[in-house]
């Protein structure tokens, strides 16, 4: 049996009409609804694919306050997960990525009664600030091979090997699709372009079955939910939350907008001579100086 884990995150819903800001420009968290992050949802889709295609069982984990349960519930709808894990403790508050990864590492190690995991998925990044370090750091702490930007994958169950396509795009360079092979266990962050590619009618019917099952299960998601605090996760309090975070947020400020106060020169093009200085300027820039 393939054991698949998914690390997810509850995030503010940034879509227009749902998001609300305070007058100082910060996010108004009270007025903005929280949802399962869109990248987390894509990671869930990848796990669901493993369930339909390889009969995997799925365990979902998230670190957060008790309200993060709602993200676990939404994730169960998408994955028909067997297990939901909430890692919640006041001590975790204020954690940076390293301290978060510490919690998630122990969380993953406890999935399915501390059974060995084969694949753990997480989102590409979160939309509210976390920029994609948590996944790779958790992977490293777990000792799982980390694969980023995975767009497509296939698992050889006998050899316990994954073949995956990864997207690599670097500034100013051609985009590369890299096909790699790697023994399990792996920790994967799923590229936003990922789409589950069910290839037969039977797989599609299977997907229907499991997704219906997932919807049904999620109605009683509490039955599947396990809540862990730092003790249950065997965590050293010095390594989690603020004490375990190398970094702190020192300051939050508005980004000054010097350039917005442009002095506009209005030019009447009916006299072509007026355009001459403009053209000089354009050419100057075009020629690189």
């Amino acid at each position: 049996m393939l054991n698949v884990g998914v690390i997810i995150k509850l995030e503010p819903d940034f879509s227009e009409g749902n998001v609300s800001y305070n007058s100082d420009g910060t996010l108004n968290r009270a007025e903005t609804k929280n949802i399962l992050g869109p990248h987390s949802a894509i990671a869930c889709n990848a796990a669901f694919y493993c369930k339909v295609k390889y009969g995997a069982r799925i365990s979902i984990g998230t670190m957060g306050p008790p309200i993060a349960e709602s993200a676990l519930k939404q994730a169960q709808v998408l994955t028909d997960a067997e297990e939901l894990n909430l890692y919640s403790d006041r001590l975790f508050a204020g954690a940076d990525t390293l301290a978060t990864a510490e919690v998630l590492k122990n969380g993953v190690e406890k999935m399915f009664g501390a059974d060995k995991m084969d694949i753990v998925f997480s989102g590409h990044r979160a939309s509210d600030g976390e920029t994609g370090q948590t996944g790779p750091q958790t992977a490293w702490k777990l000792g799982y091979t980390f694969l980023g930007n995975v767009m497509d994958f296939d698992i050889d169950l006998d050899r316990k090997v994954i073949v995956a396509k990864r997207l690599i795009s670097l500034q100013g360079m051609d985009t590369i699709i890299e096909e790699i092979e790697c023994p399990l266990p792996v920790f994967i962050t799923i590229d936003p372009s990922y789409k589950s590619a069910f290839s037969t009618v039977s797989q599609r019917l299977g997907a229907n079955k499991y997704s219906k099952q997932g919807r049904k299960k999620s109605e009683n998601y509490a039955q599947f939910l396990k809540t862990y605090d730092s003790q249950k996760l065997d965590l050293d309090p010095k390594l989690v939350g603020l004490p375990g975070s190398p970094t702190i947020v020192y300051r939050v400020e508005r980004i000054p907008r010097a350039k917005t106060n442009r002095k506009t020169a209005i030019i009447d093009p009916s006299n072509p001579d007026n355009l001459t200085p403009v053209v000089t300027k354009i050419i100057e820039i075009a020629r690189g100086k």
Binding site: E16, G17, V19, S20, Y21, G25, E31, T260
Partner: peptide, 18 residues
């Protein structure tokens, strides 16, 4: 309004109208 506030205001108005 200053330009930089317009986007925020727009989102807030969207939310209010919604």
């Amino acid at each position: 309004l200053s330009k930089e506030d317009q986007l925020k205001v727009q989102l807030s108005v969207s939310k209010l109208i919604k």
